[in-house]
């Protein structure tokens, strides 16, 4: 079937709408200064911090999110639908609100934070750990939602087959359930990592903007936009390229697995 004209026109407009800002960015890029800008110590520091924290957030989201998805998909605990709504809340909440909420919970005078301070001498806000926590908070739902959907659609009879072969619950989870949802865990992890990499609102309200400790690339870009526009553009470009490369490489892979 040939594509109807209105569909083609609207699709072209939609694509242009997404593409245009990137073209604007490329057009303003100071190409000749790019190498020196990207290697500038403060820019390198922000990039390094962003990559490390986003990977840490992704790892944390996998470790906590996969079991959470399993419980939401497979158990019949009371209040499960409410629990599911709460887990996905950070997806729709303004990140700034999430950051403020983290501060009230884990800040020095927060619900839990005061005890962390009193008992263990741990103060989370305005640390690199706080950056990771903020990123995990906003990005984990992407992983949970993806993995939960996959777990719901898997055939539990494979797990029954594993049980009749003598596999206990943990062995079955590790050797049968997890491999069967591996493509979805990967897809969810990529979404989660991309969201963590771009995190701004929750980070700035929970972790602040301390150069070298909590100033990730999105924060640095925001600051530099007012001070040194070329540095902001260079960092933006680096983020765009990293994201594009990862999406192209991994999306192909996960479409192939699913389709």
């Amino acid at each position: 079937m040939t594509t109807p004209l209105p569909v083609r026109v609207l699709a072209a407009v939609g694509f242009a709408f997404v593409l245009l800002p990137f073209l604007g960015l490329l057009q303003r890029t100071p190409w000749s200064q790019l190498p020196s800008l990207v290697t500038r110590p403060d820019v390198r520091q922000a990039l390094r911090l962003s990559i490390l924290t986003s990977l840490a957030a992704m790892f944390l989201a996998i470790v906590l999110g996969v079991p959470l998805a399993w419980v939401l998909a497979r158990t019949h605990i009371p209040g499960r639908s409410v629990a599911r709504a709460i887990v996905t809340l950070p997806m729709v909440l303004p990140p700034v609100v999430g950051g403020a909420a983290l501060l009230f919970a884990l800040g020095r005078n927060g619900l839990v934070g005061q005890y962390l301070d009193d008992w263990f001498d741990i103060r989370l806000p305005f640390t690199t750990v706080a950056v990771v926590l903020a990123q995990t908070f906003v990005s984990m739902p992407f992983l949970v939602v993806t993995v939960e959907a996959a777990l719901r659609s898997t055939d539990v009879r494979y797990e029954q087959a594993a049980a009749t072969l003598g596999a206990g619950r943990w062995t079955t989870f590790r050797r049968v359930t997890l491999p069967s949802v591996a493509p979805s865990v990967l897809a969810g992890a990529v979404l989660c990592w991309a969201r963590a990499l771009g995190e701004f609102g929750a980070t700035i309200s929970f972790a602040g903007n301390l150069e070298g400790r909590t100033e990730t690339v999105p924060l640095a870009i925001y600051i530099e936009l007012q001070r040194d526009r070329d540095a902001a553009i260079a960092m933006s470009l680096v983020l765009v390229v990293i994201s594009l490369v990862v999406l192209v490489a991994l999306r192909d892979r996960w479409y192939r697995v699913q389709g």
Binding site: A161, A163, T164, V176, P179
Partner: peptide, 20 residues
């Protein structure tokens, strides 16, 4: 006795071989 601790071999209708 749970299935993993009883020695019962069950061959399923559609085999259910682990695909991975």
């Amino acid at each position: 006795v749970p299935p993993e601790r009883r020695a019962v071999g069950l061959v399923f209708q559609d085999h259910l071989l682990f695909p991975h």
